[in-house]
Each structure stands twice: as C-alpha cells, then as structure tokens.
Amino acid sequence: MTGGLPGPVACVCGPTASGKSAVADLVASSMGCPVVSVDAMQVYRSMDIGTAKTPVAERRAELLMVDVAGFDEPYSAALFQRDARRCVDRSLETAGCAVLCGGTGLYLDAVIDEMDFPSGDAASGPRARYEAVARERGPEALWTLLRDRDPESAAAVHPNNVRRVVRALELADQGESYAERTRHLRHRDPHYAARTWALVPERETLYARIDRRVDEMFAAGLVDEVRALDEAGIRRSATASQAIGYKEVLAALDGLCTLDEAREQVKRSTRRYAKRQLSWIRRDGRATVVPMGETTVEGAAALVTDDLRRSVEAGR
C-alpha cells in the first residue's frame, strides 16, 4: 500500500513499436510478476500477428489480458476494467507489485483511475442496428449520423472508433450527450498507487521501426491470418474488423487495392495511430518520459525496475 492505495503499479506505455512490450517483459521478469497487457485489440483470440502480440516462446514473464475474448464477443472498456483489475490485484497479493503495458489510453485509465462507465445492453436493438450501419455502409456513414444528431459528441470521437460512435448514438437516443459524459470521466481519482513511464523514440526512428514491423508482419503471414479470420466471420465484428492491419488486408482481399498498396496503407495508418498515442501521453501529463534515443530497452527496463523495487521496499 502506498498513500492508502494498493500498489505499487508500474505502467509502461508509449506509441506502437516503441519497445514497451520488451521493457515491460524485462521489468516483470526481474520483479517476479506477470505483465498485464493494456491493449484493446490484443484481448481478441486469433488476432496475433496484426496486433503484435509477443510470441509465447519469447515471453520471460507471463502475459495476462491477451486472448480473453473471441472477436465476435462484445468486450468493452468496462469489462476490461473488471478483468484487468483482478489480474493486478492478484499480482499485488502474490508479488507485491504489478506491471501494466500497452498503448490504449482509455484502457489504462480504466484500470488505474476511478472510472465509472455508462451501462449499456450489448444485445440491445438500437446497438445492433447501429453496428449493422457500420458493417453495411462503413464507419464514416455511422459517424456522419452521429454528427447530424450531436455535433459536439461527434467531434470528440474518431470516425473509425465504431464502438464509441455507437455508444454516443445510444446516449443520444436517451436524450444524453456522450461529450458531456466523457467530460466527467476526465476528473481523475487514482485507484492504484501507479507510476507511468512513456517510452518515446525520436520520430524518424519510430517511423522506421513502424515500417519495419509492418513488413515483418506481412512476412510472418498477416494475410493468411486475416484470410482465416475472414472465413471465420470477422466482418460481423464492427470493432475487430476495423483494427489496423486487418481492415486494410480485408480491402485487398476484396480486390479494392493490391496487397502492396494495403501494406503501405497499414504503415500510414500505424504512423497516424502512433501520433494519437503520443498526443494522449502529452494530454495525460502524468508519465515520466523516457527518450529512447538516449537509452536502450535494457536501460529503460533498469530505470523502471529500480524505481519499482524502491517503491516495494518503501511499502514494507
């Protein structure tokens, strides 16, 4: 316990391809605890290559909160909060500390902060209708529907974030505003004694890593992975089918572009996503920034481990 809160919890975040998975794995293995993944897409089974899950054989520490749901199962931030906190609490009980790792800001906040999520029936008629619009006419059409009804909420949600657009439309049906709801969520009260570390490479280095990672994904069989998921019905999921890497390859399988064009689009989409992740880190303002141009994965891991170990000792 630190300051009356359970902990300590070390959160390793950063843009995609920044090295955070390797750093968190080293920290957790040194501290004798698992890594709790905080990634909205890695929760889905069979989506391995495109979500950059660390292969089992390469993990030094146990990796939790991956492969916890099928792509066709509704899995919200509220469910993630419940399940991830159970993992964190067990780690605190058995190892005296916990390590979180990921780039989904909302999911990280949901775990370490006091956040109450609005209720919603995943099987409700309106939700099914809105998800059908996204599947049949595309995410942009669904977002346009929200913009016409609630421009302020539409401005707060990315058009490709189908789940949040659907939720905003559900709230509009109830006479409420998603933008107003989320304003209340921004007031942060900590749930854990957590410290966040943001790994930030230099931009040119980051973009080169992203390009290399995408090439490696295609070489490792991303197209075959997407083809198998397509045969299994991934298009029925408005969330999983829109994941970066998957939607672009699905477009190529439909003949809308070549695989080479899809590969380049994945690189562009990933770079844009990395920019959004960096923007979230800046807005959040709590992270200790680790410039990855000035240190190595091992150096960053040592920095986090030393701090976490001191916190564990101080709490004893």
Score class of each variant (00 low, 15 high):
Trp197His: 08
Ile234Glu: 00
Ala219Ser: 13
His191Lys: 13
Ser241Tyr: 02
Leu199Thr: 10
Asp189His: 15
Tyr192Phe: 09
Asp230Val: 11
Ala179Ser: 00
His184Asn: 14
His184Phe: 15
Gln242Tyr: 05
Glu170Ile: 06
Ile244Glu: 04
Ala232Pro: 13
Ala219Glu: 14
Ile234Cys: 01
Ala220Arg: 09
Pro190Lys: 12
Met217Asn: 14
Ala194Ile: 12
Val223Asp: 09
Arg188Pro: 03
Gln242Pro: 01
Glu248His: 03
Ala232Met: 08
Ile234Phe: 00
Thr182Val: 08
Leu169Ser: 04
Gln242Ile: 12
Ala172Glu: 02
Arg195Asp: 09
Thr182Asn: 06
Phe218Trp: 14
Arg227Gln: 05
Leu171Tyr: 03
Gly245Arg: 00
Ile234Leu: 03
Tyr207Asp: 14
Leu169Phe: 07
Glu176Arg: 08
Leu171Val: 09
Leu222Pro: 02
Tyr178Glu: 11
Arg227Thr: 04
Ala240Cys: 01
Arg203Met: 14
Pro201Ile: 09
Arg186Phe: 14
Glu231Arg: 08
Asp230Gly: 12
Arg183His: 08
Asp189Ala: 15
Leu185Asp: 09
Glu216Thr: 08
Leu171Lys: 07
Leu169Pro: 07
Arg213Ala: 09
Glu170Val: 05
Arg195Thr: 12
Glu204Pro: 06
Ala179Glu: 01
Ala219Pro: 11
Ala220His: 02
Gly233Phe: 05
Leu229Arg: 01
Thr182Leu: 12
Arg227Ser: 04
Thr239Ser: 14
Arg212Thr: 03
Tyr178Thr: 04
Tyr207Gly: 13
Leu229Asp: 05
Thr205Leu: 10
Ser177Trp: 01
Val249Ser: 10
Ala228Asn: 12
Ala219Phe: 15
Arg203Pro: 09
Glu216Asn: 06
Ala193Pro: 02
Gln174Asn: 05
Trp197Asp: 04
Glu180Leu: 10
Asp173Cys: 12
Asp230Cys: 11
Leu169Glu: 10
Glu225Val: 07
Leu222Gly: 10
Val226Gln: 04
Leu206Lys: 07
Ala219Cys: 13
Arg209Gly: 09
Ser237Lys: 00
Gln174Ile: 02
Glu216Gln: 01
Leu229Val: 06
Leu199Pro: 02
Ala198Tyr: 08
Gln174Ser: 05
Arg195Leu: 12
Val223Glu: 06
Ala240Pro: 00
Leu206Trp: 06
Arg236Tyr: 08
Gln242Phe: 00
Pro201Lys: 06
Ile234Ser: 00
His191Asp: 13
Ala179Lys: 01
Ile244Val: 14
Trp197Met: 07
Arg235Glu: 00
Ala228Tyr: 07
Gly245Met: 00
Leu185Ile: 12
Arg209Asn: 11
Glu248Ser: 01
Leu169Lys: 03
Pro201His: 07
Leu229Glu: 05
Ala238Thr: 14
Asp230Ala: 13
Glu176Leu: 14
Glu231Ala: 09
Ala219Trp: 15
Tyr246Asn: 11
Glu216Phe: 02
Ala243Val: 07
Asp215Arg: 09
Trp197Pro: 03
Glu202His: 12
Val249Thr: 09
Glu216Gly: 04
Ala208Asn: 07
Ser237Asp: 00
Val200Thr: 03
Leu171Ile: 06
His187Gly: 11
Gly221His: 08
Leu185Met: 11
Leu222Val: 03
Asp211Cys: 04
Ser237Gly: 06
Gly233Asn: 01
Val214Arg: 13
